[in-house]
Amino acid sequence: MLDVFFFYAFAALVLGGALLTVTLRNTVHCAISLIASLSGVAGIFLLQKAEFLFAVQIIVYVGGVMVLFLFVIMLVNLDTAARDRQFNRQWIAAVACVLAIGAEGVYFVRSGSGAWTFAAPSEFALSAGNTEDIARMLFSEYLVPFEIASVLLLVAVVGSVLMARREA
């Protein structure tokens, strides 16, 4: 039962934070809502016994990405923008579009339910050491993608420095 409670609590945090992120006027507030939402996602990870990803989510997003966002928000003058219109002219069409996609998704699930079943919660049990499992797989089977990911990060860092530096 506690499971169910936590799921709805975290889901509310995730969706509420996300809604606030896309609606609030002040960008700093948006960022804080985003932190809330991403923390909720971290909680969802924890519920699914993905402890390692939980830690990664907290450290990387809340610790890293959010700080980056806040820096940029302060670097770029957003005061005038905050007083401005927040949504572009196509917002009605966009929201309609999104709702249509959602509705169609619901329709698909409805019409296709019964095609699959999901395991009951009691069976959610990965082996004890989640971090160990990940490490073993990451450094054996996924070693090459892992290294490629590190190159990707390096390229991203170099690229962003190059773009953000004051032009000569």
Partner: peptide, 8 residues
Amino acid sequence: LTRRSIVV
């Protein structure tokens, strides 16, 4: 699709 601010 809707927000004007690129940060958001």
